[in-house]
Amino acid sequence: MLDDFFTRAVIGGIGVALVAGPVGCFIIWRRLAYFGDTLSHSALLGVAMALLLELNITIVVFVVSVVVSLLLLVLQKRATLSSDALLGLLAHATLAVGLVVLAFMTWVRVDLMGFLFGDILAVTPMDIGVIWGGGIIVLAVLAYIWRSLFAATVNYDLATAEGERPDVANIIFMVLVAAVIAVSMKLVGVLLITALLIIPAATARRFSASPEQMAVIAALVGGLSVWLGLRGSLEWDTPAGPSIVVAALVCFVLSVMPMPKLWAGREPRRQQPSDRSSGVKEP
């Protein structure tokens, strides 16, 4: 079954989506989209370093992302530069340096487009093992820190005061984001990882009443997008990463369209004490 490159891509892709959904929810809740962008752009620097040192790409990308995210945490605490300027600076600096270093390495044949936009053919059985093994670990750790991380997301001070140790949860979460970037790079490419993290989560928002529900729905929507995107990519010979993102976008657009009563009725209605619209008001 794993002989077929398309099947491998689908299995790998769904593995990535199942992890990206819940992690992406936290990225949305905490308004970290730009932060995720910075991290994923720095992945190209990781690729360049891995090729230079002849090491495993996934592992080096993971390590570089962890270092960059911790660096960001430290810089944000003391820097005078505003944090979005800092993120923008680092995002493009690491991307540019990565591209330049890759261009210098004339002795290795580099499929740059594959790194930027994902390479459906490149998913090996080994990659699938890494994606699912790594994915299960990421989800297990996320489940373990869930309460602290969520409490810190709602209110950092409250979480601290009530003994949830949000700093620890925050650092672990950064590492998880780095891991998701490292394993999803091959599939969607460094430029579009953030899209895979946030679009399914944003799609899930409309259908969720609780954070846990939103995480599960985001994972499912992500999986569906991967399948649709890869089918489309095969059908029309389009690059894998962008096709998956387009599929996710279609799901999102559908989710924000006005819906028939089916969903509208699920939202718990709250009674309004004063009803100004009706004329039946008591005197």
């Binding site: 809740w29 409490a151 001070d157 409250l158 003994g163 009443a209 954070p211 939103m214």
Partner: peptide, 28 residues
């Protein structure tokens, strides 16, 4: 020390689906 805190300011932005019952179980 088991502390409970009602902060002066707490915002729940709309991206966060959070019912009152789920909020009650935020840290316990």
């Amino acid at each position: 020390l088991r502390a409970s805190y009602v902060p002066q300011k707490l915002e729940v932005n709309w991206t966060l689906p959070l019912t009152v019952n789920r909020f009650l179980r935020l840290t316990n």
